[in-house]
């Protein structure tokens, strides 16, 4: 049986998916609004429980990424679940190549998480006195690469769980083991940046981050066909 070609070319398809998600987000601001509230709530719980305590730099680095991880977990699960719930999966399958869907969704999720992480980091720096970045370059690279890896892995897992029954609970369960190498190295690199380490000291973490991003992105693109057309 000859498979019909989707209507849009891969590149245009990816851009179309990205624009569609961006427009629907700008129209409703559903994800961003609830995520900002999520961050405010989480941050205030942390501030209440650490009030008057001396938080060490390494602990503050860990707490930052806990907020980022759970914010991503509550925000990114929607990307494929919403298509499944609205029954628009079939339409997308007709219009675009599977890889365009993944790349379009990945671009949108990355944008969402980058915006969100900027807000988290600013809010965290303002409210957490122990968290003062002494090596801005290390911190910048960590956030840029870490956020990208986080959004790649979680976008792909979101595609898997959109077909499952208990989506909300399953998402962090499936993502955590996959994201753990990333989380361990970003937490370590953030700790180094807070302690004012030199670039050479953080190079090991950056190598892990880079290879993690490459591996996970490649595997996601290779396997997405199976998830999307099942």
């Amino acid at each position: 049986m000859k498979r019909l070609r989707p209507i849009l070319t891969p590149m245009r398809g990816a851009v179309a998916i990205f624009t569609k998600d961006l427009n629907s987000e700008l129209r409703t601001r559903y994800a961003l609004n609830s995520l900002i509230m999520f961050v405010v709530v989480t941050l205030s719980i942390i501030l209440f429980s650490t009030a008057g305590e001396a938080v060490s730099p390494s602990l503050s680095a860990g707490i930052l990424w806990i907020i980022v991880f759970f914010a991503a977990m509550s925000g990114l699960s929607r990307s494929f679940v919403s298509e499944e719930e609205r029954g628009t999966t079939m339409t997308l399958q007709l219009w675009v190549e599977p890889s365009s869907v993944l790349i379009g969704k990945l671009l949108f999720n990355s944008l969402l998480i980058y915006v969100l992480n900027m807000m988290i980091i600013v809010a965290y720096m303002l409210t957490m006195p122990a968290f003062t970045v002494k090596s801005p370059l290390i911190f910048l690279i960590t956030v840029v690469m870490g956020t990208f890896g986080l959004s790649t892995a979680s976008t792909f897992i979101a595609a898997i769980i959109s077909k499952a029954n208990s989506k909300g609970t399953l998402y962090p369960v499936l993502s955590f083991p996959i994201l753990l190498p990333l989380l361990m190295s970003v937490i370590d690199a953030t700790r180094l940046s807070v302690e004012g380490a030199t670039f050479g000291e953080a190079a090991g973490d950056f190598k892990i981050l880079l290879s993690y991003c490459v591996v996970v992105t490649t595997v996601s693109i290779m396997l997405f066909d199976f998830v999307w057309r099942d």
């Binding site: 898997i160 077909k163 190498p181 361990m184 892990i208 595997v219 998830v227």
Partner: peptide, 24 residues
Amino acid sequence: TLSAVYSIVAFVTVPFFVFIMPRL
């Protein structure tokens, strides 16, 4: 299909724990 995909994704992250993390 999905559990096969998940086991592949999980397997490619294992070298990070077995070979890289202990060193770090």
